[in-house]
Design a binder for these strands. Structure first.
Lengths: 216, 216
DNA sequence: CTGCACGCCGATCTTGACCTCCACGGTGGA
DNA sequence: TCCACCGTGGAGGTCAAGATCGGCGTGCAG
């Protein structure tokens, strides 16, 4: 039992060369990148600060010279990821005025986000720190904000009550989230754009038939 | 700072009277019930074995005389909850041959499950132990199994390829999961049956338009 | 050449949670 | 009424992981 990190039978990522020193700003960026990789691969609890430090090729004190604690580090990454998907969703909704295209564009955005190399979406959709209120608030905010923006469109174009519009919008977001995650886990039997288009079709067929649809 | 249990500013559940002894089978059931309450309220990591024992009105050794460890206890509860929703889903799908009714019945089942007093759905949909493979496997299995049963219906009635059917089915499951959770968090502004019916309508409108629908 | 500042590392402390050992009290039989 | 028995309870061990302190090497100003 030497200094070997937790033998999780994973350890697919060997540490960096542990070479020389580095400007402070650059080191911080590298630490963030390493932390993201470790958190994504192992989750919050299973990820040890030692793992992150090793992954970055530095020792633990250096990590604590850049971030006050584990939670702060996690929240920094989580905020980045949450802001990214919310902004992308907003842009997709604003990219057109045709609702069918809106659905398609938004669905594509979700699939792109989930398929992005870094896997940052796991921090949001598969977080294992939901008992922490700070985390819970941010995770919920992703679904809530996205749904709220979608609900505005639904309410405007259908005249449905607020609560119903919100619930429908949350359903569409849930459809995107869950299907995209399982599409990714499935191993790419369907091309990303085809999958997004398929689910966008499902969503659009579902939502278009509601009262006062004057889209054409 | 005496022996007070973790001051989580929660502690909404006072322990049981700590009274006399009890038949073994009954004690076990009570321990499971107490453990479920604590896990649901605090999550796996934040829940301490002391909390569960206190909640049941017994001391820690008794808890260990009934369950080998914390993880086993959690998995027992998780299995019960997973089996329940999968079985309910299967029954709902088999309850009729009309696909529109199938969608409605299945959606109602999801909402009933989420709305059930015990809150056991949190073990499945909001678990904070997804880094554990045993847990991950069970949680994923809920979505996968439900989706698989739904996909059979879709494939049979539409002639879509397997992968597309699975993805569509997963989308419907995700819609149900996420919308039901946020409906519950919303605080009952919409009645349960109305919410389920609304989302069932969305799902049915979405899915009914696919090729080779010979339902009438 | 020498002193200094800076970033880095090995080794350590502490906390907290899971998991067992010595005393107590109620129960059935002689 | 006395005694053996068994389940209960509080106090403690162990260990992993987050968080930290004295020393080292390098490069530069004087």
């Amino acid at each position: 039992m030497t200094a070997g990190s937790t033998d999780t039978s994973f350890d697919g990522a060997q540490p960096r060369p542990r070479g020389g020193r580095m400007p402070r700003r650059e080191r911080r960026a590298q630490l963030l990148e390493s932390a993201l990789e470790v958190f994504v691969a192992q989750g919050y609890h299973a990820a040890a600060m030692d793992d992150i430090a090793d992954r970055a090729g530095v020792s633990k004190p250096v990590l604590y010279q850049h971030f006050p604690g584990k939670l702060d580090l996690y929240l920094a990454l989580l905020d980045t990821s949450c802001d990214l998907i919310i902004d992308n969703c907003r842009e997709a909704l604003a990219s057109t005025t045709d609702n069918k295209d809106r659905v398609t564009a938004t669905m594509k955005v979700f699939y792109s986000y989930v398929a992005s190399e870094e896997g940052a979406f796991r921090l949001v959709f598969e977080s294992d720190l939901t008992s922490e209120p700070d985390v819970r608030e941010r995770v919920d905010r992703v679904t809530t904000e996205c749904a709220s923006m979608i609900a505005d469109v639904i309410r405007t174009d259908t005249g449905l009550p607020d609560e119903a519009s919100e619930l429908l919008a949350v359903s569409l977001v849930g459809m995107a989230q869950v299907s995209a995650r399982f599409w990714l886990a499935g191993g790419g039997e369907i091309k990303q754009d085809d999958a997004a288009a398929l689910i966008a079709g499902l969503a659009w067929r579902g939502i278009r038939g509601y009262p006062m649809t004057d889209d054409h």
